[in-house]
């Protein structure tokens, strides 16, 4: 984390807890830059997270109100806080297993309710903290500690899922696309209603080393190579698309201008 973002971190924080090469550190930096550019009033920003590596992005690092909850329920906790105090700019930051496996029900219902909050789902395609077990987002065939012969199941397409549940803004970017990601986070926060951003954030420790992506640099390069835009995806056959990840916005409407959430709001 560069020095200029120090104002957003608690003084007690010396370093992040993430493994070398983990995507979550990049996401952390991009998120703070997005917030900094928007000049959000930090005393009104609430970060809610669940359990897992990604849940540690805001807690305890960010100097704001942070609610580090139980596994899978971050969105439900955020629902109560936001409904009671609509002034709170509510950001949920958690992992794919937390938000979409154990917590999938709360996620789709919050999207259906169209609560005014932004959910950042750091998708590392595996359960990192507990040692690399298969998740509902693990690609078919990938090796994990609970799928030694390769994952026999299909992964969720989280963006399609949440868009179908009624989210106002839905986007997917990788941590290797920091500028696009930053813009998406800002758009999500500005959206009046439910916003969901899937952030592909590689896990070299638990996913990479079992899937020929042990070297963090290789992991990032591979992610970059697999990402294609929606327009590029259109010109590919289904089998060509299978190994790629489509980035971009999958639902977008109803954004107001930056001022609406700035210091004057």
């Amino acid at each position: 984390m560069s020095r200029d973002m120090n104002a957003y971190l608690r003084e007690e924080i010396q370093r992040t807890p993430f493994c070398p090469g983990c995507g979550h550190g990049i996401l952390m930096g991009v998120l703070l830059r997005a917030i900094d550019e928007m000049a959000l009033p930090m005393e009104r920003v609430l970060f809610v997270s669940g359990i897992g590596c990604a849940a540690w992005i805001p807690s305890p690092h960010f100097k704001a109100d942070t609610l580090h909850t139980i596994h899978g329920r971050a969105v439900a906790f955020a629902t109560g806080a936001k409904l009671y105090n609509p002034e709170l700019i509510t950001l949920v930051v958690s992992g794919d297993g937390d938000l979409s496996s154990i917590g999938g029900n709360h996620l789709i219902h919050a999207a259906r309710r169209d609560l005014d909050m932004t959910v950042l789902c750091a998708n590392n395609m595996i359960y990192g903290m507990t040692g690399g077990q298969v998740a509902s987002t693990t690609p078919e065939g990938a090796e994990t500690t609970t799928t030694p012969g390769g994952n026999p199941e299909r992964p969720f397409d989280l963006c399609r899922l949440v868009a179908a549940a009624g989210a106002r803004y839905v986007a997917r970017y990788g941590v290797v696309q920091p500028l696009l990601l930053k813009r998406a986070i800002q758009k999500g926060i500005r959206t009046r209603g439910f916003a969901f951003i899937e952030v592909l954030s590689p896990c070299p420790t638990q996913f990479g080393r079992r899937n020929r992506l042990r070297d963090p640099a290789e992991t990032m390069k591979s992610l970059k190579a697999r990402l294609i835009s929606q327009r590029q995806a259109k010109s590919l056959t289904e089998s060509e698309r299978a190994s790629r990840i489509v980035y971009g916005e999958f639902a977008s409407e109803d954004s107001d201008d930056l001022e609406g959430r700035g210091r004057d709001a």
């Binding site: 439900a76 906790f77 629902t79 109560g80």
Partner: peptide, 9 residues
């Protein structure tokens, strides 16, 4: 969970 979130708000 929502009750707890609201209580902290």
């Amino acid at each position: 969970c929502a009750v707890i979130g609201a209580a902290w708000a």
